[in-house]
Write a protein that binds this DNA or RNA. Sequence first.
DNA 1: ATACACTATGAATGCGTATTCACCAGTGTT
DNA 2: AACACTGGTGAATACGCATTCATAGTGTAT
Lengths: 343, 343
Amino acid sequence: MKRSRMHVTSRDVAMLAGVSQASVSRAFTPGGRVSEDKRARILRAADQLNYIPNSIASSLTTARTNTVAVIIGDTDNPFYVHVLRAFMTALQARGQQTLTFTVEPGSTSDAAIQQVLRYRVDGIILTAAQLSTRMVSLCHDRGIALVLFNRYIPGCAVPVVRCDNEGGGRAMAEALYNAQARSFAVLKGDPLGTTSQDRVRGFCQTLRELGVKAGNIQEIEAGSTYQGAQTAMEKHFSSKELPDAIFAVNDTMAMAAIDFVRYDLGKAVPDDVMIAGFDNIPEGDRAPYNLTTLDQPVRTMVMHALVLLDACLAADDLESVHPEEVVPSQLVWRATVPREPQS
Amino acid sequence: MKRSRMHVTSRDVAMLAGVSQASVSRAFTPGGRVSEDKRARILRAADQLNYIPNSIASSLTTARTNTVAVIIGDTDNPFYVHVLRAFMTALQARGQQTLTFTVEPGSTSDAAIQQVLRYRVDGIILTAAQLSTRMVSLCHDRGIALVLFNRYIPGCAVPVVRCDNEGGGRAMAEALYNAQARSFAVLKGDPLGTTSQDRVRGFCQTLRELGVKAGNIQEIEAGSTYQGAQTAMEKHFSSKELPDAIFAVNDTMAMAAIDFVRYDLGKAVPDDVMIAGFDNIPEGDRAPYNLTTLDQPVRTMVMHALVLLDACLAADDLESVHPEEVVPSQLVWRATVPREPQS
DNA sequence: ATACACTATGAATGCGTATTCACCAGTGTT
DNA sequence: AACACTGGTGAATACGCATTCATAGTGTAT
């Protein structure tokens, strides 16, 4: 008796409504051709039986699961948590399911993708995680849309949405230079991540173009987390002198740098050292930090990613779709870098 | 030609390996009875064809999707983000998929659950979100495991894992009282959330038992977010005097309170006012805050939740499973409440 | 009136896998 | 030598739905 109502199928509904199973299916399919009165009768019967369509079965015939996998590499970075939230919200609004995966930093997302492919997701969005080209072609062969978010694979034509990381680095270099900084440190993130690489490259290159000598640009591996940046700061600046400005490749690290400078060194930001970040996470706007940073327009980027996803889904030929959508970042002036030149 | 290899099925593998489709299925099923040499041959053929089993099809026959839905209500609270991460990690480690849903604060999770039920998830974990009893029975009738996390529905026998929120509130009341606080404010969270309710109740009740008059306990609706707490603080304490101690129902609000006291009022914590939170999010441990709070053992709670989930899955009769697992919180002494009585 | 376009409907079929059933070949037991 | 028993195997079937095909019904143009 419990069992009997555990699995109400379209057939049961059909029986109660006195129609064929096919009609029930049509009644629940948006474009289905059923007369209005019959549809009403069917819906009433369905309601009475507490019928809930089985998406699994439907996916089997339609070869569409209406599910998108989001693979997120760096859950320690609040920015990517916000990205995940934005994707979940946007996908939900579109009536799609979100299959979420985290990938340990350092390891590749191959296993996750392999797993995801079993579930025949319609598309995959990959943020902040490594990926082998083998997996790319695996997805490609299966006609599964794959969109990279803020990451790209050199020499591999995959749809990408990313911030203009290099441009952001450039802009920040100019901003700090204009604020009269002449010696610099860069807190670098994941060495394998193109995001960090590009930001650092843009930053350092621009500084050199501005005439800053290489000796005055200190590149520091900081592991991309708060902890990592903290220990890196400790290691480099406990005894040695601070540079004029520190550019952290993300806000979390910038916050660690600020905390270290203030609470361990007892110095002031920006008076003793300017500090800037990248991402513009909401936490950076709070009173203790008031962090000058570069805004990544998450919403816009997410939107672009989904548009790209749809394009892949619609295209019969995946070959035809592999654009690269590059969104500019924008400098957000706050208190950790003086706005006006100091003298 | 592209199409042809887009859907490699077990039948294709069977053909190449010269066996029946049934054997291929057995070769991929953990307990499947196949001879070793045949299994090897099958796996080789599968590898050659890039075969990936179709979980959708398999779910249709087994009535198991190996997928768990995690519904999260309060994505603004870092604590629940950590909870989500913990669940994702744990589920992944168990080889299960995570279907993630967010629910707008204020709205109920009924729609999300309805949606999730279509996908025939094996279980649902609900954190920080409202839920109607109607949905509970809907899940129940379908034999779908439902576990509430840090939330319960009064008068409804659903498996629950939660922190001893009331006990935590009590402990904090004693701690603050022992630190010589005599006037208090409580920053309350979601009025509908049992979490906030319980913490507040435990706190206030204990204070009264300690002899604090009701007039010296100020209950403030603060909406559970940083922003909410900030504006609540502004509204209540811009002109009026501060109490001896403020207990925020979660760490995020406590951080907002600290920031407000320091940066807007220019007063000191804990010298001018003690401030305590609840949850023990990692951010509270950083230098600017050093927040005294109550630790919720997330890992333990997540583990309990999954054990409960398994129990529901294993039980033929869902009726038999509806325990309530209550985990104690633990006071974490840091700097925002003086440890020794001030005398 | 006939042909035609179009809609509403049910019967039948297929999606890709797990599982049941029947069968067969060995292996040891009495 | 007859027996039960075990493990390996393929044919056939079921899972729940979408979709195709054929049929009947309705109206419009010829």
